[in-house]
């Protein structure tokens, strides 16, 4: 089992810009919450069916901490495609890199988060499935594996869809799939000593030109989220009247 993970800024953090780029130095990083569901699910599957859990990440720098978190939770192995050329590369390129790395492993299952909380693209899992020519089941909330097949519940509008597919496959984890464990102290200590396996683009046979972002940034801006709202803080009966009037117009 391979779990693809990445780091994201803590969702409570202020995201600041500098010259059209996000200022990253001051951000606090965490393992993407959806990826955490992915790691947990792989660990649960291992406990039930055996096998090995490999955590995989690809970025220019700063991936170690993310991988160590997965190791501390219980992953067996960590693989880091680390290359300066990955700086600023978006999901299109990252999916290609991950696909190359995964295609060199013998795997039954690839698990990704449904999306990351920074770009919120939800791209990499699906693209990975297409590049690896494996079935994709996205946004899963329940998983049961029996033999070479599995059954999963997907969250869709207005309900839950149950699908069945063959392995190997790519799954993306939705909230509700499980409750990720906290790393234990021995787990954290062990993770510190565990070796991370490094790969770079050359070793995967990928050239920089294959990774050019197909969408160019024109600008980056703060949205105008704030509204000049009216505040009603007086008599509650009057407030209710005025609010009813507002609602009637709004709908």
């Amino acid at each position: 089992m391979v779990v693809c993970i990445k780091r994201v800024p803590d969702t409570g953090a202020r995201v600041e810009m500098d010259g059209g780029r996000v200022r990253e130095e001051r951000l606090e990083w965490v393992l993407n919450p959806y990826d955490e569901f992915g790691v947990e699910e792989a660990l649960l599957l291992k406990a039930e069916h055996g096998g090995k859990v490999t955590a995989l990440t690809a970025r220019a720098s700063g991936g170690e901490e993310t991988l160590r978190k997965a190791l501390a939770m219980g992953a067996d192995e960590a693989v880091y495609v680390k290359d300066a050329l990955l700086d600023g590369i978006d999901g299109h390129g990252i999916a290609r890199v991950l696909a190359k790395a995964v295609s060199r492993m013998r795997i039954d299952l690839v698990i990704c988060g449904k999306q990351s909380t920074d770009s919120e693209a939800g791209y990499v899992g699906g693209a990975l499935a297409a590049l690896l020519d494996m079935p994709l089941v996205s946004a899963i909330k329940r998983l049961r594996i029996t033999g070479g097949r599995f059954e999963a519940d997907r969250e869709v509008e207005g309900g839950v869809e149950t699908v069945e597919a063959s392995l190997p496959a790519v799954l993306t984890a939705q909230k509700g799939l499980n409750e990720p464990r906290y790393p234990s102290l021995p787990g954290i200590m062990r993770a510190k000593r565990q070796e991370i396996k490094y790969l770079d683009l050359a070793s995967l046979g990928i050239g920089r030109e294959e990774l050019e972002n197909p969408l160019k940034r024109v600008s980056l801006a703060y949205p105008s989220m704030e509204r000049k709202g009216r505040m009603l803080a007086g008599d509650i009966g009057e407030s209710a009247k005025e609010l009813a009037e507002f609602i009637r117009h709004a709908v």
């Binding site: 989220m225 704030e226 509204r227 709202g229 009216r230 505040m231 009603l232 803080a233 509650i236 009966g237 407030s239 209710a240 009247k241 005025e242 609010l243 009813a244 507002f246 609602i247 009637r248 709908v251």
Partner: peptide, 27 residues
């Protein structure tokens, strides 16, 4: 900060009153 209209008060008091107001005009 992100609201067009904000009501400072207890929702348990306000919402029943709001429902009454809305029913008056049979929205």
């Amino acid at each position: 900060k992100v609201a067009d209209i904000g009501i400072v008060g207890d929702l348990h008091t306000l919402i029943p009153m709001l429902i009454e107001e809305l029913k008056k005009t049979k929205a």
